[in-house]
Design a binder for these strands. Structure first.
Lengths: 195, 195, 195, 195
DNA sequence: GATGAATGAGTTTTCATTCAT
DNA sequence: CATGAATGAAAACTCATTCAT
């Protein structure tokens, strides 16, 4: 159980993370200075280092936050009493919702091996693999139960994830399509590959 | 007509570009120093500045080289006497072939607005729009002639381009799938959205 | 007469000093952070500032503690009813004992003018001079009374102090020679210069 | 054979080293900024990094320069056709001469394990051991040939090296004793331990 | 055309110190 | 008395870029 203090710190950390992600997304990781991140929060550089030991650390926790949410959503869906078709639909919709509502965080997450080494990288890669495998599982089970056609699972998963990971690059909150519409369109069209 | 000298210079430039792209792809643009690029070519930093006036210039010409090829391929396909279904199939295959054979260059090309401003950026964005519009045209014409189902063109184009642009992130020349197999799978599956 | 409270504080201060000296000795003054010193004592940085107003203050009191002991020992020896030969022998032995038992503190004490300015430095330098002069007095008196040969006092004092101040650099409590053996050897050999 | 260019670079490096050592000696390693070292040479910080990759590197090369000279001198002495008594005398005199003429460099050399780790440290420690062993050899051989009394070699070597290593702390070029006088006094007095 | 030396602006990071609670 | 959070000044180091030779 977390104390009041811990909560307060956690809140602050998330605030920093969000602010950092927004700037990273705009200017790129290297194009962003710690100074800027701090300034936008009306903090000093020094204070930021009280909460995060590194610039890398900042980036890593952006990854982690999203990965936890993504995987959490996915596990909820997998544990639900739905058909595999419905599960895939929901997984796609959930991803779209997250990618659009956390656009900055998602943008920040690409090319992890350019930014990380060792443990951090291992952890990130492990999470990604896990996420990919959840998709594979849906595809595989759907195929086994004849809900889906017999496709090359890896290829189809790559198509799906590619389409989903591209969203954050073009989505604009003020754009003509709402995230709701996008998630409907994406799930409907991508399902056509399998049905 | 280009003189011998110009040819030689062009050759050298492409050599530099290729080397630079390979390192950019591995370590990221900012993670790469001019020193490294030069060293890998057994040149000195100074010499590189004879061929490219900037680090940005290096990156820009990576973009340009690929964009020219991509658009060239696309125009050839559009000008060919094929059905729209065949054209889309070929466009997808051509993209896959290029993305796999020029993996490094493709990797280097994302998030141009993080690296460029003004003219360079305008040019890059214009090329991208042009490329996207060629896809749209295929989709639109295919729909008009009833080869394709009546889909939301923008959404489907985003799915297709997303899937294609994700390839360079996971493709490995030594991987289990050849670029040939990938291009077959991708064109087949993506077409299912439209048929 | 000191109250219970004062005693308790004095105790705590010495505890802090000892801990600080140990880390200073290992990592150097600049290489040691207040954080580390505090952490090793299971305190927080903030608390330390209750006891010592400065990092410099910490270092200064390390000096002071040793200097007081050294000079105290020396004065006791000088006031004792011994021959000058015996006094020199005892002075050397006492120094060796202190340098080995308080190795860390001694290590911390070199190059005071790199760490201090003004008053602190004056005080330290004064103590050192005093200590050196005690040695000189022993030598001078010993020579006057023909116990020692007629040597260049300053040179011989420098040899003696040099040899003694080098001990803390190589002495290891678990080493082959006990501090007892070292003090015997040092006093015996150094006396040979004078006899 | 070294080219003109190499010579020029070597000269520059030594110039930097000397300047750095002087400031290190005065203010301590940590108390000295790269800026200062550069400024005193009318260079910019950046240029210094062209010649030395590190602040550590600077310090290391100070060590190396002196260690090479010290060991070189020592080997010359050992290879000369002198008695062991004369060799020890010369070794002491040579050390005094170097310690006084290169006072700054010598001052910079203490407590290497506070500044270095790994390879650098290994190398430094190896050189020091080598130097110490040369002294031991002189003592041992002198004893074997009955030139010297039968002393505890390690203890006597520690006394000698301690006395010698203390010189740089108190020697002043403008002081009352010339380095010549010091070297005569030190060799004469220290020899008394052995004769 | 090539090169090596120099530069300087910029960035991350560290830490002693303070102070409200 | 103790503490955790904040600060700001300083320092090491990096690198794209230039330019005389």
């Amino acid at each position: 159980m977390s104390s009041f203090k811990e909560r307060k710190i956690a809140k602050k950390k998330e605030e920093i993370l969000r602010s950092a992600a927004a700037i990273f997304a705009e200017k790129g990781y290297h194009g962003t200075t710690m100074e800027e991140v701090a300034a936008r929060l009306l903090m000093t550089k020094g204070s930021m280092y009280y909460y995060f030991k590194n610039k890398d650390d900042l980036l890593f926790h952006c990854h982690q936050m999203i990965m936890e949410k993504s995987i959490g959503q996915m596990e909820e869906i997998l544990n639900s009493p739905l058909t595999w078709t419905e599960k895939l639909t929901n997984a796609i919709k959930a991803h779209v919702q997250l990618a659009t509502s956390e656009k900055s965080m998602f943008m920040v997450m690409d090319k992890p091996n350019q930014h990380f080494t060792d443990e951090y990288l291992q952890e990130i890669l492990a999470s990604r693999t896990k996420y990919a495998q959840y998709f594979d599982r849906i595809l595989l089970e759907g195929i086994r139960l004849k809900e889906f056609q017999n496709v090359d699972v890896k290829m189809v998963r790559m198509i799906i994830l590619g389409a989903l990971n591209w969203i954050q690059e073009w989505y604009r909150p003020e754009g003509e399509k709402s995230s709701e519409e996008i998630s409907n369109a994406f799930s409907a069209y991508l399902l056509k590959i399998l049905l």
